[in-house]
Amino acid sequence: MADKKKKEAGYEPKILSFCCNWCSYAGADLAGVSRLQMPANFRTIRVMCSSRVNPVYVFTALERGADGVIVTGCHPGDCHYARGNYFTRRRQALLEKVLEEIGFDRERVMLRWISASEGPEFASTMEEFDATIRSKGKNPLSEEVFL
C-alpha cells in the first residue's frame, strides 16, 4: 500500500503530530486498539496539553523539513486544564496568519480536536492530512540550504 502511494507522489511525506495526553493521544491509542489502519508516516510528540505547543515548534519542524504539522487536542470545553485549548486555537490562528504573510502554504499546518473516544476520527484525520500533504508534494523549505 505504502509502495503504491510512494510511487504516485514520488515521495513519502514526513508529518509531525502533537497530541495532548488526555484526549487526542488517548484517541490515537484507541484507534490502535481498534486496529484502525492509517498511514504510518506521522510521528507523534506527546505533550500534556495542546497549549504547551509553542508555535516555535511548528516553525522549527517546517524549517527542518517536515512536510506537514498537525496539532491535536481536546474538544473546546473539554481541555483537562480547563481552557488550555482555547489558547492553542488562538496561537494556531496567529501562526497560520504569519505563515500566510511570509508566503508559506498555511495548509501544511492543521489543528484538530479529537476526544479520547474518537479513535475513528483520529484515523480519518490522519488519512485526510496525509492526503492533503501528499497532494502538495515536498515542503519547499526542505530543498533549501540554511547556513
Binding site: 500500500m1 505504502a2 490515537a28 491509542d29 484507534a31 490502535g32 486498539v33 486496529r35 484502525l36 489502519q37 492509517m38 498511514p39 504510518a40 508516516n41 510521528r43 507523534t44 484515523a123
Partner: peptide, 24 residues
C-alpha cells in the same frame, strides 16, 4: 515510546512500521 498502539497496530506494512519505530 509507543510502538504498539500507535505503530504496530495501525499498519500492516512491516517496512513502514519499522521505519516509524526507528524514528520514534
Amino acid at each position: 515510546t509507543n510502538i504498539r498502539e500507535q505503530v504496530a497496530w495501525v499498519t500492516k506494512d512491516k517496512e513502514e512500521a519499522t521505519e516509524k519505530t526507528i524514528r520514534l
